[in-house]
Structure formats: structure tokens, C-alpha cells
């Protein structure tokens, strides 16, 4: 059993009196797809926001075991988490740079590397070759991911004008262009038709196999979850109610109860 990539320990995130995430602990391993599931409002997106630094949990510790040493994510700013810890994410309601082209979206994602190569753009302003080289590399990487998500033909289109399914895939490609060790996907299959959904499964398995990174996946679509995840964490009202392999989760009575709703005792009586 390999060391965990992400360790979430006793994390609690409160909004006023509401415990959106309540004393949650679990780990995600490298080269595995860890799914986080749960009914609406269970706290899945809030958990992602804690991991990626958009929220600071009041209690708990989030450790990312980066190849270069462990990092405590709850102490880092959101942008340093991507930069230093190599955590990339997508959003439940897509957040592309809508009026920029598809290619530009992917190049902006490589900002940190390009900034370093261009000496904060000064080298680029003076037209030094070092920057031209770095840019060519960035385009190459973008081309690779365009190819992977099947958007090469749309490279010069406005990102906001793409159909919904394409936008979802572009967001994943953009996240991958940051060169992450952990990729967090918030409901990537939402709004996709069955064919697109199947394509997405293949893409995610492909990313895991080729890049050897860990994936954290929020998903409502059970066909996606059961088919591709290695490990599942189930949340309800901010608490973990079950954790385990897909087959075990499918049969777990607590999970079934959470999804189907507990029988209402007053009405039943």
C-alpha cells in the first residue's frame, strides 16, 4: 500500500451555525481515482474549496504529499496551492475565460512557468529568444491536451461559444495544463449526454494512466462513479457516512438510506 497523496484529517468548515463539512477524514492515493459522492448540499464542493484554498477550514489539517515534500494546504493561499502543491481543479459551474480563445485558455494555465521563463514578461517585452522558446513549449503542451480532449479543431474559437460538453472538457484540459499532481473535478459529467459521459470516463482513466496523478472526483452520475473510481467517500450533511471500494459502497445500507431518504417516521406512523 503506497503512501497517501492527500490526507484530510478532521476537517470542519462552518458557515455560521451550518456545518458544511463536519469532522471529515479520508485520504486519496496517487494514481487512483477517489470519488466523493453525496446528496445535494452534502458539502462536497465545500470540501473542494477547502482543499484548493478558497475556504479556510476552522478545524483540521489537509496534507498534500508532494514529490518534493509534504505541504499543509490549509496554510497556503489558493493560488500557491496550484503553484507549489500542484493541485488543480475544475468548477461545478464552468469557469472558463469565456471571451478568450480555447488556446489562450490553455496558455493562461501555464502562467507560472511562462512568467519564470520570461523574467516576469520583461524578457518577452524585449523579444528575447528564451521566452519564444518557452512559449513554443507552452503551445506544444496545449496542443497535446487539445488533442486529448478532442478540441484541436476549435483551438482558435472563443471558449464561451463552445457547446457545453466541449466547455467541460476544455476546463479539464486547462487544469491539466498547470501540471498538477492532484486533479480535483467538481461534477465533470453534469449536463453531458451519455456518449459524452462515456468519453469523459475514457479521458479520466487516460489521465490517470498516463500522468500517474491522483484524481479527486465529485459526481452525481453513479454510472460514472461506479465505473471508474477506485475508492469512494460518501458524505451526508458534511459527515462521512461510508468509505470503500465501489462494490462495497453500492451495497452499504447507510449510503442507500442517504440517497433514498430515511422513511419519515411521523408520516409512516
Amino acid at each position: 500500500m503506497s503512501e497517501a497523496l492527500l490526507d484530510v484529517e478532521h476537517v470542519t468548515m462552518r458557515f455560521g451555525g451550518l456545518f458544511a463539512v463536519n469532522d471529515l477524514s479520508f485520504s486519496a492515493r496517487p494514481q487512483e481515482i477517489t470519488a466523493v459522492i453525496g446528496p445535494n448540499g452534502a458539502g462536497k464542493t465545500t470540501l473542494f474549496n477547502c482543499i484548493t484554498g478558497f475556504y479556510k477550514p476552522q478545524v483540521g489539517r489537509i496534507t498534500l504529499n508532494h514529490p518534493s515534500g509534504p505541504l499543509l494546504l490549509e496554510r497556503l493561499d489558493d493560488y500557491t496551492i496550484t503553484r507549489k502543491a500542484g493541485v488543480a481543479r475544475t468548477f461545478q459551474n464552468i469557469r472558463l475565460f469565456a471571451r478568450m480563445s480555447v488556446l489562450e485558455n490553455l496558455i493562461v494555465a501555464q502562467h507560472t512557468r511562462l512568467m519564470a521563463a520570461s523574467a516576469f514578461s520583461l524578457a518577452g517585452l524585449l523579444g528575447l529568444s528564451r521566452y519564444a522558446q518557452a512559449e513554443a513549449q507552452a503551445v506544444e503542451r496545449a496542443r497535446h491536451w487539445l488533442d486529448k480532449v478532442g478540441l484541436t479543431a476549435f483551438a482558435d474559437e472563443e471558449a464561451g461559444s463552445l457547446p457545453y460538453g466541449h466547455q467541460r472538457r476544455l476546463e479539464i484540459a486547462r487544469a491539466m495544463c498547470t501540471g498538477p499532481v492532484l486533479l480535483c473535478l467538481d461534477e465533470p459529467a453534469a449536463g453531458l449526454n451519455p456518449r459524452e459521459s462515456a468519453e469523459l470516463n475514457r479521458l479520466l482513466l487516460d489521465i490517470r494512466a498516463e500522468n500517474g496523478i491522483g484524481l479527486l472526483l465529485i459526481e452525481h452520475d453513479m454510472s460514472v462513479v461506479m465505473e471508474i473510481s477506485d475508492h469512494i467517500v460518501v458524505l451526508d450533511y458534511g459527515r462521512k457516512i461510508a468509505e470503500g471500494a465501489p462494490t462495497a459502497i453500492k451495497a452499504d445500507p447507510a449510503v442507500i438510506r442517504a440517497y433514498l431518504g430515511e422513511p419519515d417516521e411521523e408520516e409512516a406512523g
Partner: peptide, 25 residues
């Protein structure tokens, strides 16, 4: 055409997405 300028435009489009890509707003 340079990272700084691209980051400006990206910021105009979506600040949260910028932060998720390692850009310090």
C-alpha cells in the same frame, strides 16, 4: 502576447478561475 497581459485578460474574465490556475490576482 506575454504572460502578464494574458493574466490581465484572464482576470477580467474570471478572477476565481485565475486563482485556481496559480495566478496571484
Amino acid at each position: 502576447r506575454l504572460p502578464v497581459g494574458r493574466a490581465w485578460e484572464a482576470l477580467r474574465e474570471d478572477e476565481i478561475a485565475c486563482r485556481s490556475l496559480g495566478i496571484n490576482p
